[in-house]
Write a protein that binds this DNA or RNA. Sequence first.
DNA 1: TATGAATGAGGCTTCATTCAT
DNA 2: AATGAATGAAGCCTCATTCAT
Lengths: 225, 225, 225, 225
Amino acid sequence: MSSQSSSTDRIREKKKLFLDREQRIIDAALELFLSEGIDRVTVSKIAAAVGIGKGTVYKHFLTKNEILIRIMLDYEHNITNCLAVGITKAQSGDPGAAAKGYFEARLARPELDRLVQHLEVRLSEVEDIAPQLEQLHQLRRSNEDSLNGLMSELIEKGVLEDVPPHFHYLACWALAQGAVELAFNKSWNYRTDSKELMEFISNIGVTMGNRGQYHNVDGNKTGSK
Amino acid sequence: MSSQSSSTDRIREKKKLFLDREQRIIDAALELFLSEGIDRVTVSKIAAAVGIGKGTVYKHFLTKNEILIRIMLDYEHNITNCLAVGITKAQSGDPGAAAKGYFEARLARPELDRLVQHLEVRLSEVEDIAPQLEQLHQLRRSNEDSLNGLMSELIEKGVLEDVPPHFHYLACWALAQGAVELAFNKSWNYRTDSKELMEFISNIGVTMGNRGQYHNVDGNKTGSK
Amino acid sequence: MSSQSSSTDRIREKKKLFLDREQRIIDAALELFLSEGIDRVTVSKIAAAVGIGKGTVYKHFLTKNEILIRIMLDYEHNITNCLAVGITKAQSGDPGAAAKGYFEARLARPELDRLVQHLEVRLSEVEDIAPQLEQLHQLRRSNEDSLNGLMSELIEKGVLEDVPPHFHYLACWALAQGAVELAFNKSWNYRTDSKELMEFISNIGVTMGNRGQYHNVDGNKTGSK
Amino acid sequence: MSSQSSSTDRIREKKKLFLDREQRIIDAALELFLSEGIDRVTVSKIAAAVGIGKGTVYKHFLTKNEILIRIMLDYEHNITNCLAVGITKAQSGDPGAAAKGYFEARLARPELDRLVQHLEVRLSEVEDIAPQLEQLHQLRRSNEDSLNGLMSELIEKGVLEDVPPHFHYLACWALAQGAVELAFNKSWNYRTDSKELMEFISNIGVTMGNRGQYHNVDGNKTGSK
DNA sequence: TATGAATGAGGCTTCATTCAT
DNA sequence: AATGAATGAAGCCTCATTCAT
């Protein structure tokens, strides 16, 4: 009986080691992508970085592209979780929490977010991965349904502008997307303060589309007169 | 002398033809990138699309990457011009004109804007192009200086929030960047109305950071007076 | 002593199990080769088909090629047996029995015969198997000696044409070889009747080289009476 | 005008050189296949044997398999021609000419015939070449139609046994196929005389199925007396 | 000057074989 | 004794770039 349980244990342990290594492959790939650029990462390099043979990588992933997809899915799952927390908070009375959570998740490691964006473009040009990409899209769509519900609520409550609900979160997504790109764009001079900048942008993201804003533009508002 | 001048003319004409062809190469490359995806465009295809030999392409560009850079530079020059017009308008009393011009320029052909974004990432991974990339960055920085001046003015006038001036245009840049990506992302469900959506986002871009906005949220305006 | 004998029994039993498994490996390999094509059979697949581990296969066979050789040897042994029976019959007064037995053996499972032919070609290109191949050839040569003897007898008796004895059985071999290939060649149109066709060919095989044939063309028959 | 014609000449010459090299590739591949065995021939080796770069091979053939197919088609075309000549002769009064021509064509370079047989088996296991293989099969089928016609005639004339016409040429094909294999099989002892042997077999091929043979077995025959 | 044929480095992937457990 | 995870050699193919004409 002890032998049985120990054999079970051993299997379990092996499984764990296997999964651990899978994670190490992904991590190594990630690091290489970030440090050397997508084009310069080869399966050989990944294997070498993990300290395993090239063939072993293929025990975990059917093709190189599957590694990329996996990185993307893992990342998207993380986003999904953060967003879910934010949505819950938003429904408990903090209207901006969803956008905030979303921004924080994506700007936590902007370099990673950016990598994922670019991986997606590469993969969209590749054949035979449509199904896995579809999985990614489905994940996003389920997020979207949640967001759509939340936005509708907030519009009803008068917190947000009365435009199609998805306008709000898509604008938010766009801003996050751009903020990430901004964080890495080498063209800008004045940037000794990216943290404050990101907060500034996050704030815009959290408040944009709020009902007060446009009134302000159109109508009397502003004691500016 | 007439023979001399005619020879000069001939030289000039040749130069013109040469430059024309250069542009045709760039245009063809652009179309191919957009229609087939970056990875699937080869120098051969570009040459064939222009109707010239592969070797001839190399009379105009030292490497394939130089074509990419050139596409980016051309595009950035266009942006620069549009922005310059906007800045001029802004200084003549229409504070939102700069942001508006910028957004319009970038969203005019979002697919092109997006292409350029992705080309940039590819190229940033390549060695030996640093100088040309630097040229691109310098172009942007000169824009930036103009924008910085404009923003400072608008802040002084109380039109914009009193944050470091570059926060304003960088946020704007980020939103435009993200809006472009949004236009192409396949993950979103609710999108039968991308034109209105882009206007909505443009509006945010034009007004975000405006001084009224945040006060407005709190309650009655700025006791600033 | 009883313990000893039981231990001997156990050893014997183990040996039997071991040999059984060896046969199962060969059988599985055979089935896979036939159903999937030589190129698509891997050692892994064979092991999986048998329900054992890949490593275990290597307890039985030093290399993958040894499995192939073994398939061929087994097959050749079977042919040998059938032929031996035929030869015996031939010597008991039925001159065609040897050829008949031979044809029947090879055409019994033409797909298998064909497989073996092709395996042989693969293996002849491989180094380090010369000895085993030699074994195969020796087996055939021993058959050949028997046949040679038989043919000589039949020639002496005037049943067969007076040509070098091996001409007869080699022609027979060739026809069988070709008939097998014929059964699998996809190029032929008129083939709703392969059974009759094979009989037709078998008949030719049995009678070809018979003395009567040519005489017959020239003039009067066999003094067989 | 002379310049024009010279340019045309040059183009023609280039085309010729190109086709020449294509033939050299095929020839080199052929030699390598014959001398080293199918499995040991790589595209690199072929290119090296021709004295060109690996990439150049791919200017002529889309894939390695296309080289194989090409070898097969070239060979089959040759067979077709020889057969056509034989059929013509057969229709002019020499009934055995078709079979004779066919045998001679295939046994002229038995090692090549054998190679083609085996290439075909390899390729039939490969996907995505079905169309080209179909071309090969069509070539054979057109031959078959001619043969079918000829055999029908000969049967009508009483030269051949009255069995379905295709029995005759298929038996012939089978014997040729086997004869080729025989010529290369290393298992046989008594073979210092392969030329005579091949003639013996050819003779069988030419006469087998002839009407006299079976009658002969049954009974009276030939008014020869 | 324009060409495009030729090149070959380099990437992905497969699978027979080994060996520690 | 049985296993199967790990390995890495080896093969096919692409395409940017060169250079002789």
